[in-house]
Design a protein around this nucleic acid. Structure first.
Length: 858
RNA sequence: GCGGACGUGGCGAAACCGGUAGACGCAGCAGACUUAAAAUCUGUUUUCCGGAAGGGAGUGCGGGUUCGAGUCCCGCCGUCCGCACCA
């Protein structure tokens, strides 16, 4: 019994693919192209098996499409700017560039171990000037087109470190390093006008038919189109007005207060004179900028003492509050509260004892007694207590209220989006410099295109908090390109989503220096046919990329709106977590099972096994990729990543699972290298006829081709693996015994083995190449075409049909394919078990589902 | 809080458009080979009653539609993901 030497074999075939340039992609207009892309990684350190899943999935698609004759583009690169590099710089005194490139080296080597079919000649890293110079040009284009602009917006501010914090660095309202309560600060920042495309981004979702519905739905909700009314309240005793937006103009007569966002200009004005208002706003600002934090916080309000007149009933006035749950970014930053019909409003009203006036009454309720306690009524009904709206239903009342407001000239029906413009300024070093200069005389001046790229200075220190670009002695001091006077470089850098919003297009011509890509290459390769990555990117990255593609289109770079024709979102790889008595996390390899109980390998201390969680360094529940590949080989790791769960679901990494995959690798190896019958040579003519057993094996082979092809088309890789294993089991039963000549079986075995090798190739390419060579196949398996199923061997002549009596299974019968009702009915009723279950009663009805079921109803 | 998903044996899962629930694998049990172990191979494995034939129950919980529901509808419960400066 020979053993498969994966170490030698994997290295051998990787070298062969490399030497022959097998996966080098070259444009060829005569062939159909297929562009497969996995979301490129952030080079954070080392890869664990969780990272590898994404790439294994993509590689199956790439190799499968290759076998089907497509000209495949399958590139890989590095999303190389980002916060962790700066954190490493602060913690370990390593320069972000050095840290990043070291990680790229390590991770690139790890990826190569997996035998992925990348065209490595297209590798790119976004932190190189060769990459980001194009994005600086694109930004200037956007500026020319009015797609980029500057406005004030809020950031999280750590008052101790004097630094802007990311949302992730704010924990329970405090800075992660200093523990100081976070404040919100206003800064002037760059924005991209994604809202210009809101309607188009929304409409085009319908065309993305190869995207998961859930992702389209999430984007739809994120864009959040809603129609309603924008109108102005007159203030009592002041000449100005407060503008509000509502989607429920029908409930206006139920209004009992007006609430301003703490960041509303009027709130700021009041705060100048009233320290209590200022204190309240400061308290709200301690929540930071994250919407989740704001919306989960306890509802708080402050009565400003101002009042506004009700627009339909000027004798009525409403108090003006400042409330922490009103977002400045949505609508107008001010609302009217109708507690009876909005849950947030009623929570607020009950807390501050404001009136609750029901104005929509469900038709099943008596208007005289209908009341709302602590749960808002948001369903349909008829209007009451609402002046001219009385008796209308909700929709009619909305229309009437808008019409009246427009007549009065104090408001208009309008459509608003939840989607906000994309703030791209970051007060950080490790990002792409924003190519503008600030001149006291000329204002904001773009860096002239012939002076691009604006590169990052290398001599920076992270000794003190804040943005090193800001502290750099010389970098920001430049002369104004317009007037030549002293001016300052912009020290903010781009959000790293900027890089990932167009990298897929750069891969079309990654070496082209004169622009982001060539038109011809983009024309040929784009859009990405299949994009693969985690659901966590369902909204932001994917929406930004869709926006960017349109912005690039409108700047004349390409003729395309949608970057990703197909999308697959994969689940996480999870692993149990381990904690020792002291509470410290342990790596899986530090734990072993002794006498059925988990203990710490060193010392034998007791270990608590926690729940399954996404593999992450912080919980130490990671399984190193290199270690696994060294122990079991790349193919075994790939098989487990593909076989145990459907791609979109989470996958639990277990020792038992990897053992099972390893066992199959050995089984397939022995099946082909030590066949149970002497195999005829490659290409030997088929015998004139086949015996029963050989024919059954051939049927299984061709059915498996059909099934696996369908499974791969649908990305059901786990099912494809199950079918491949099943075929292996079936073919292993061929032993030459039984009816028919042994030669028939040997031929069927050879046919089956070749098919198996080809089917397994996208999943375990090294093993498949080796077996292909050993079985006498010619050329590289990577260049062979996908097998085709013989239709005459796929369909069976007889089928097993279930017989039910009153929906309960009582027997199964064999019927000819597509048997008609009388025949099926007769066969079903003839079954003794069916007779017994019918208890002598006549059949009232017999339902036939062809080739599946006969249901006798008595 | 808002938005999105998911829930099937001891475990990972399969079940196409509403049609035989549990394919395939893991773990377990029994056996073969072996001095022994490992590896490998064979059988068995949702659960309850039964010697068997056969029968009852069963897809998070409670209802409903249907000849027939894991699948569709209504209401709960639980878990996970996203929420705009993590990537």
């Amino acid at each position: 019994m020979s053993r498969y030497n994966f170490k030698e074999t994997e290295a051998k075939w990787q070298a062969a693919w490399n030497a022959q340039g097998t996966f080098r992609a070259v444009e060829d207009p005569s062939r159909p192209k297929y562009y497969v892309l996995e979301m490129f990684p952030y080079p954070s350190g080392r890869l664990h098996v969780g990272h590898a899943r994404n790439y294994a999935l993509g590689d199956v698609v790439a190799r499968y499409k290759r076998a089907q004759g497509f000209n495949v583009l399958h590139p890989m690169g590095w999303d190389a700017f980002g916060l962790p590099a700066e954190n490493a710089a602060i913690a370990n005194k390593v320069h972000p560039a050095k840290w990043t490139f070291q990680n790229i080296d390590v991770m690139g080597g790890q990826l190569r171990l997996l035998g992925l079919s990348y065209d490595w000649s297209r590798e790119l890293a976004t932190c190189t000037p060769e990459y980001y110079v194009h994005e600086q040009r694109l930004f200037l284009d956007f500026l020319d087109k009015g797609l980029a602009y500057r406005k004030e917006s809020w950031v999280n501010w750590d008052p101790v470190d004097q630094t802007v914090l990311a949302n992730e660095q704010v924990i329970d309202g405090r800075g992660w390093r200093t523990g100081a309560p976070v404040e919100k600060r206003k800064l002037s920042q760059w924005f991209l006008r994604i809202t210009h495309y809101a309607e188009e981004l929304l409409d085009a979702l319908a065309t993305l038919d190869r995207w998961p519905d859930k992702v389209r739905l999430m984007q739809e909700r994120w864009i959040g189109k809603s129609s309603g009314l924008r109108f102005r309240f007159d203030m009592v005793g002041r000449p100005d007005t407060i503008e509000v937006f509502t989607t429920r103009p029908d409930t206006l007569y139920g209004a009992s207060f007006v609430a301003l966002s703490p960041n509303h200009p009027l709130a700021a004005e009041l705060a100048e004179k009233d320290p209590k208002v200022a204190a309240f706003i400061a308290e709200c600002n301690r929540l930071g900028t994250s919407e989740a934090a704001i919306e989960t916080a306890e509802k708080l309000g402050h009565d400003t003492g101002l009042r506004v007149a009700h627009p339909f009933d000027p004798d009525r006035t409403l108090p003006v509050w400042i409330a922490n749950f009103v977002l400045m970014e949505y609508g107008t930053g001010a609302i009217f509260g109708c507690p009876a019909h909005d849950q947030r409003d009623i929570d607020f009203a009950r807390k501050y004892d404001l009136p609750v006036i029901p104005v929509v009454v469900p038709e099943t309720e008596d208007p005289a007694t209908f009341s709302v306690e602590n749960e808002a009524y948001t369903g349909p009904g008829l209007l009451r207590n609402s002046g001219f709206l009385d008796g209308l239903d909700v929709e009619a009342a909305k229309r009437a209220a808008i019409a009246r407001m427009e007549e009065l000239g104090r408001g208009e029906g309008t459509t608003v989006y939840r989607l906000r413009d994309w703030g791209v300024s970051r007060q950080r070093y490790w990002g792409c410099p924003i190519p503008v200069i600030h001149c006291d005389a000329c204002g904001v001046v773009p860096v002239p295109r012939d002076q691009l790229p604006v590169t990052l200075p290398e001599d920076v220190s992270f000794d003190r908090p804040g943005n090193p670009l800001e502290h750099h002695p010389t970098w920001k001091h430049v002369s104004c390109p317009q007037c030549g006077g002293a001016a300052r470089r912009e020290t903010d850098t781009f959000d790293t989503f900027f890089e990932s919003s167009w990298y897929f297009a750069r891969f079309a011509s990654p070496q082209y220096a004169k622009g982001p890509f060539t038109r011809e290459a983009a024309q040929y390769w784009l859009p990405v046919d299949q994009y693969i990555g985690g659901v966590e990117h369902a909204v932001l990255h994917l929406l930004y990329s869709r926006f960017f593609t349109r912005a690039m289109r409108d700047c004349g770079y390409l003729d395309l709106a949608e970057p990703f024709a197909g999308l697959m979102t994969q689940g996480m790889v999870t692993h149990a977590t381990y904690r020792e008595a002291g509470g410290d996390w342990l790596y899986p390899e530090e734990v072993e099972i002794r006498d059925g109980r988990p203990v710490k390998r060193a010392g034998g201390g007791s270990v608590e096994v926690g729940r399954l969680e996404k593999m992450s360094k912080s919980k130490k529940n990671v399984v190193g990729l290199e270690h696994m590949v060294e122990t079991y080989g790349a193919d075994t790791v790939r098989l487990l990543l593909l076989s145990d769960s459907p791609p979109d679901r989470d996958l639990e990494w277990t020792e038992a699972g990897i053992d099972g995959a390893w066992r199959y690798v050995g089984r397939l190896w022995r099946f082909v290298t030590e066949p149970s019958l002497p195999l005829p040579p490659h290409g030997a003519p088929a015998p004139a006829s086949f015996g029963e057993k050989a024919l059954a094996a051939r049927r299984a082979t061709h059915k498996t081709i059909a099934a696996v092809t369908q499974d791969l088309d649908r990305f059901h890789f786990n099912k494809a693996v199950a079918r491949i294993r099943e075929l292996t089991n079936t073919l292993a039963e061929l032993d030459g015994a039984g009816e028919g000549a042994p030669e028939d079986q040997a031929w069927a075995l050879r046919e089956g083995a070749e098919v198996l090798i080809k089917l397994v190739n996208p999943l375990m390419p090294h093993l498949a190449e080796e077996l292909w060579q050993r079985i006498g196949g010619t050329g590289l398996l990577a260049d062979q075409s996908w097998p085709a199923a013989d239709p005459s061997l796929v369909v069976e002549d007889t089928v097993k049909v279930a017989v039910q009596v009153n929906g309960k299974l009582r027997a199964t019968i064999d019927l000819p394919r597509d048997a008609a009702q009388p025949e099926a009915e007769a066969a079903a009723l003839a079954e003794p078990n069916v007779q017994r279950a019918m208890e002598g009663k006549p059949a009232r009805k017999v339902i036939l589902v062809p080739n599946r079921i006969v249901n006798v109803v008595v």
